[in-house]
Simulated assay, not measured.
Amino acid sequence: MILTEAQELAVFRFCLEHLEAGLGATPSIIFAAICHLRQQETHNPPSIVWFQQWLKKNPNLYTIKTKPIAHLRVATHSEEDLKTFFVEYQNTLSKYGIGKSKYIYNMDESGVRVGCPTGEIVIVPTHVKELYTASPENRKSITIIETICTDGSPPLPPVIICPGEKIMDEWIQENLTGAEMIAVSQTGYTNENINIALAWLDHFINHVGAGPTAHWLLLLLDGHITHHKDDFILKCYENHIVPLVFPSHLTHVLQPLDVGVFGPWKHYHNKAIYNALHSRDMEYTISSFFRELSSIR
């Protein structure tokens, strides 16, 4: 037996304490606490497989994903909406003679609040169905605009939008290639700034070799307000680029960049934040765990 009955109860109370604090105990914290406890008793730490099986069979605990309340949203879509979009997509390809994947591009932007994590997996008592964590609103945000091609070729250099009025020297890191484009806005988002949208379009035209005599390209976009501006649309067609906008309520279903690029980017951004937070609090966490154990004994 890895854990005694008293230790099992201590783990439960420890999870409950974190829940009441509005945080939630992550699997890594619980596993680390159990391993530390075993080491203190001169026993070998359990394997991660044992921990996963123990958690799965535990009648009092399970995992849920926390929900930062500022990010909650409800979206609806129908099968008919999807069919309508793909009919338009196929008609556009036929009309402009776009028959190869190398002529189809997708762009999108995604922002993060620097230093603010999203939801994470935590262990809670089984009577808990949801856990909302505080979501700070006063942090700086940055936005990245990415562009990919359906033929799987390397993505275009990104456009990075930082909050401010001018580009600062300290933003230029050694790991940048030099092909990236850095822009600024007051908020760190594109907002309704057509100048940023046009600057990105020039960036796109330059890197894909678009132009009045080049082959027609299809550009899949979200429904951002700047993509409907006359200047943006005219520059697209002048350079043989056909903009096709996803339905606004279907971007989370149709947008390739959300899964292929922004998903991993936000995952590692989130992981870096939680690693910093948990490494700082681990000593307190272990101490809290032993207090629970001592109170039961």
Rank of each mutant, 00 (worst) to 15 (best):
M1G: 09
L9N: 08
V11W: 01
F12P: 00
H18P: 03
L19G: 08
G22T: 06
A32M: 08
A33W: 05
A33V: 11
H36F: 05
Q39W: 08
H43K: 14
H43D: 12
P45Q: 13
S47I: 01
W50A: 09
Q53E: 14
W54Y: 15
L55P: 12
K57Q: 15
A70L: 14
L72D: 10
A75F: 09
S78W: 04
E79I: 10
T84S: 13
F85S: 03
Y89S: 10
Q90N: 14
Q90V: 05
Q90L: 10
N91D: 15
S94E: 15
K102N: 15
Y105Q: 02
N106E: 07
D108N: 12
D108C: 01
V112R: 04
I123C: 07
I123D: 01
V124C: 07
H127T: 12
V128R: 10
V128A: 11
T133W: 03
N138W: 08
R139I: 01
I142P: 02
I142V: 15
T150E: 13
I161Y: 04
G164R: 04
N175R: 13
N175M: 08
L176R: 11
A179H: 12
T190K: 10
I196S: 03
A197G: 15
L198M: 14
L201K: 06
G209V: 06
A210V: 08
G211T: 08
T213V: 09
A214N: 10
D222C: 09
I225Y: 03
H228T: 11
D230Y: 13
D231F: 06
Y237S: 08
N239Y: 05
V242Y: 08
L244G: 08
L244I: 06
P247L: 01
V253R: 15
V253K: 14
L254R: 10
Q255W: 09
V259Q: 13
F262C: 01
F262G: 02
P264K: 01
K266M: 07
Y268V: 12
L277K: 15
S279A: 04
R280K: 14
E283A: 13
I286R: 01
I286A: 07
S288V: 02
F290T: 01
R291C: 09
E292L: 01
S295K: 13
